[in-house]
């Protein structure tokens, strides 16, 4: 089983904590030592949320060192860019095609980076980027907050993970962590995201 480090980055209310918990649970179920850490000062009030998830033989630090992460799961484009420096050479950024301008941008005091600038920050780390229509697809499924699980589905089908973690492990972790009333929708979001990546 590969030792992998994941950064999940986005804005409060986007389902980052749940996605991180699922990712951590999958790590545990595939025989890893796992640590997960969140940075969310006042996240519910529109602030940044970053979650670090680490799978390893023995995981020491709950935080990932910049320049070493294998994956960035970007729930929002600006926050994916902000987390890009965590990526190591050969890393992969899976980014929701969704922009949520912060107050300084809506007030006209700052510019939201273009897709090309976001990409440059990621490729500048020697990493690749995959834009995913997660917000759009999640809204179509019934709730924008499903975007996180859709992104997880996409992530699960990227080369390293597709070959090492069976689909059923992801679905079992999801089932354990999502309340029963939301299970079916989350499952559908995951499967759609996974099929999107594979197709």
């Amino acid at each position: 089983m590969p030792e992998l480090d994941f950064i999940l980055a986005g804005v409060g209310g986007q389902g980052i904590i749940l996605a991180g918990d699922v990712l951590a649970e999958v790590g545990l179920r595939t025989g890893h030592d796992v640590k997960k850490s969140e940075v969310h000062g006042m996240a519910q009030r529109g602030g940044v949320v970053t979650s670090h998830v680490r799978w390893g033989k023995i995981v020491r630090s709950p935080l990932i060192e910049p320049g070493t992460a294998h994956f960035v799961l970007g729930f929002e484009a600006l926050e994916a860019a902000r987390a890009a420096h965590y990526l190591g050479d050969g890393g992969v950024a899976v980014v929701n095609r969704y922009r949520l301008p912060p107050p300084s941008v809506t007030a006209g005091q700052a510019a939201y980076p273009g897709d090309d600038e976001v990409e440059a920050l990621i490729t500048g780390r020697g990493a690749t980027v995959a834009w995913v229509e997660a917000k759009t697809r999640a809204s179509a499924l019934g709730h924008p907050a499903l975007a996180g699980v859709y992104l997880l589905g996409y992530l699960s089908a990227t080369p390293v993970l597709a070959g090492s973690v069976p689909r059923d492990v992801w679905l079992a972790a999801l089932e354990r962590l999502v309340p029963e009333t939301h299970r079916e929708l989350n499952r559908r979001a995951f499967v759609e995201g996974r099929e999107n990546a594979a197709g």
């Binding site: 009030r45 529109g46 320049g67």
Partner: peptide, 19 residues
């Protein structure tokens, strides 16, 4: 030292706000 220093990029901040 870290092989390539990785300072966080300069981007518009996202402070928390009243809901």
């Amino acid at each position: 030292p870290a092989p390539s220093p990785c300072p966080p990029p300069t981007l518009p901040a996202r402070p928390p706000v009243l809901c």
